[in-house]
Design a protein around this nucleic acid. Sequence first.
DNA 1: CGCCGCTTTGATGGAGATCAACCTTCGTGG
DNA 2: CCACGAAGGTTGATCTCCATCAAAGCGGCG
Lengths: 253, 253
Amino acid sequence: MITPLIKKFEWFVHLSDEDRRLLRAMASGGVQHALPGEDIVREGDHPVFVYLVLDGWAHRYKVLEDGRRQIISFFLPGDLCDLNIFLLKEMDHSIGALTSLSYLRVTRQVMDTLVEFSPRIRSALWWDTLVSAAIQREWTVNLGQRSAIERVSHLICELFIRTRMVGLGDDQTFPFPVIQADLAEATGMTTVHVNRVLQELRSRNLILFRRKRLRILDVEGLTRLALFNDNYLHLGREGAHMDADDRSAVGTG
Amino acid sequence: MITPLIKKFEWFVHLSDEDRRLLRAMASGGVQHALPGEDIVREGDHPVFVYLVLDGWAHRYKVLEDGRRQIISFFLPGDLCDLNIFLLKEMDHSIGALTSLSYLRVTRQVMDTLVEFSPRIRSALWWDTLVSAAIQREWTVNLGQRSAIERVSHLICELFIRTRMVGLGDDQTFPFPVIQADLAEATGMTTVHVNRVLQELRSRNLILFRRKRLRILDVEGLTRLALFNDNYLHLGREGAHMDADDRSAVGTG
DNA sequence: CGCCGCTTTGATGGAGATCAACCTTCGTGG
DNA sequence: CCACGAAGGTTGATCTCCATCAAAGCGGCG
């Protein structure tokens, strides 16, 4: 059930059986569900839980007074939002479901337990936080410096890798359950222009988009066009020195 | 010496004398200096220290293959970069001095000590991390949704508050040691256009810029123009419940 | 005094916004 | 099984904000 999270963590450190058992305790509160468009948290709410996406996609967003809306990040299965958010009085943004969604609401107590009893999980959570921050920084670069077509391509490259990190999708195709309006709000463009950019990417034989799945026809080409460098995703198994060496360890990834 | 950090933390929780003593231990490695334009850390480096800015401004930036450059964040006195960065193998961005700079390099061991011996400092560090993340998200919104003049205004509003948080500047005027090229790289604009936007802000009697200081003539007006909402800076003394109540507590801020 | 880094100005061009339709797809119910 | 409607995708015409290019001003410091 929480396998996406485990799959992601394994990119950092190999967990022990005990670690996995601990992580499964996150589900003790029961699985929650939301419909597309439904908000999980709203700006101004008092934060109580850490959220973990199990299935489906969610997004973080902010709305300006005059209605302009920006998607700040996407949450894929295995993504956690806002470790230690309890320290804040009010949410400064909202989180909503993009697709139909199942997720966990994890209490402070459960998070504390994870951190207390497993140094590996503690590190993996920090690593995840650092990677999330790096992604947000990369979005800053994306919006600040890249052209429309580069921006869309870059986002696609990122989501391709993040999708595979959590064990979804295959070599060339992966779930891409967002509509053009979502892409527009994430990249700071209009839907009209997103549409034209996607057509351009298709006509260059870089991508193919069918039935909520995206196929990258030319990873190399798309990467080059996007000026994409995956170093900010920190896939180097950086916690390998603290790997659990019990039989449950997975391959070298 | 580390007063800016302490001043900032006091926006979250009142520290005890013991807390301050602990924080001063961060300076045990000696004060470092850098000249304007000098890099402190480069993309690709293996991260070893947490950095704390004492005096002057620094910036985090990334450079694309073709030379385009984006400033990702500004570091003011009292700003920490990259708590727990040790978990990563390589830096995914660079940090450089904007002005002449003094700063501390804090080792993992010293950070661990802070966190171990003071729950207040532990929380304050997390709070600071959460606020930094919120700032990065707000930059995403800024670049994605706001027009050029709104973007520049918003950045000015933010830096005004952050400056006052660490005890610099007065009611209307604060140090603003960045050149127009820096503003351009932070807002994803050209220097030419930054220049014209600043002229517009001056002609509307919103700001005044002299000798590396900025005076906001009409805070209300600038805030409105920028669609600025300071909630993401979380100035609500959110850790007040864990205030140290010894005599060293400062006013209510 | 003169240079260098920074700011300012003007002219021109283009990426992407805006506005307004129209088309396609797909789920729903009659 | 088809009609219908709504959500999402596509198109074309026009406009505007900001980039680009090039040059000239300014001011602080050696």
